[in-house]
Design a protein around this nucleic acid. Structure first.
Lengths: 151, 151
DNA sequence: GCCATCCGGATGCAGTTGCATCCACCATGC
DNA sequence: GCATGGTGGATGCAACTGCATCCGGATGGC
């Protein structure tokens, strides 16, 4: 159980961290230069747009984005303060709320996507063929599978 | 220049961020549970051990780890406060300093590695064959290549 | 020698994260 | 109906990050 992993695994691990650091840094920097908010805003708004008028409960959004509860709570604070999101009480559950994206939020998504996509293309796509990207995506997916069961 | 990247690239991008988040989170959590400091400490000490008695200048360490200058400055503060690293003035350059790892720092590296390696194995190795890990490492390496030159 | 500039490194401050805890409300047993 | 425990979400506080700036020493022009 505590066997040392093969070199290739350690190499992949190191590169995973570094590549993500590098590409994310470059992409976020581009977006910031263009005057856009952090990517977390984009992700949250994207989920909310996908949910449509029904909206999402904060805990659902928390599950969809891999984000800690307190962290999401404060992200929603900021999104609401900026007018991208509306918090409404739930009829069904007095403790909870429903989050829905506003027009303004949709507009932000629409404005960000071209810049975001271009940045992804520049910092990721430019380094890979389409086939390589597909292979990479498939391999990374393996890492997202549920953790290996203890035999 | 602002072409939308193909779906496979976007898919790889999303999975890159999520996979790193997931695996890093799991690995760091394991190390923390075992009472160890954050991985940044390990990385820094590893570089310093590699440099041996000659040590490293902070700006060299900054380059080796992808870490902002002010950030490194404070990481070194913490490492020094914990006795893992020694700051000494440079004879060659009055502004600078040389960082060297202490016995205690080496001991920490030695203590952390088994736990770290086991965590990598569990959260990364368990999901991939060795060949897949090698492919993944190679693909991620492409992302670390210098940015594409503007034609 | 003297000045302007640059570079290595530190630091004050604001914004963000992690952790622990708290509050309110739901659900269950009785 | 009321105590008990669980769940959704917020928040005080300490740690950490990013940014801008600052300081002191090096370097180059003259």
């Amino acid at each position: 159980m505590t066997a040392i992993p093969p070199d290739a695994v350690v190499a992949a691990w190191v590169r995973l961290v570094r590549a993500r650091h590098r590409v994310l840094g470059a992409v976020e920097a581009e977006l910031k230069r263009a005057g856009f908010p952090p990517l977390a805003w984009y992700d949250a708004l994207l989920e909310l747009r996908r949910a449509g008028e029904a909206g999402l409960r904060p805990y659902q959004l928390e599950g969809a984005m891999l984000l800690a509860q307190y962290n999401l709570s404060r992200l929603v604070d900021r999104l609401a303060a900026a007018g991208h999101v509306v918090r409404a009480p739930t009829p069904a559950d007095g403790r909870g709320q429903v989050l829905t994206i506003t027009e303004r939020g949709c507009a932000l998504l629409a404005a960000m996507w071209p810049a975001y996509a271009a940045a992804i293309g520049r910092h990721m796509g430019a380094h890979l063929t389409e086939a390589e990207a597909a292979t990479l995506a498939a391999l990374l997916d393996r890492l997202l599978a549920p953790p290996a069961e203890p035999g």
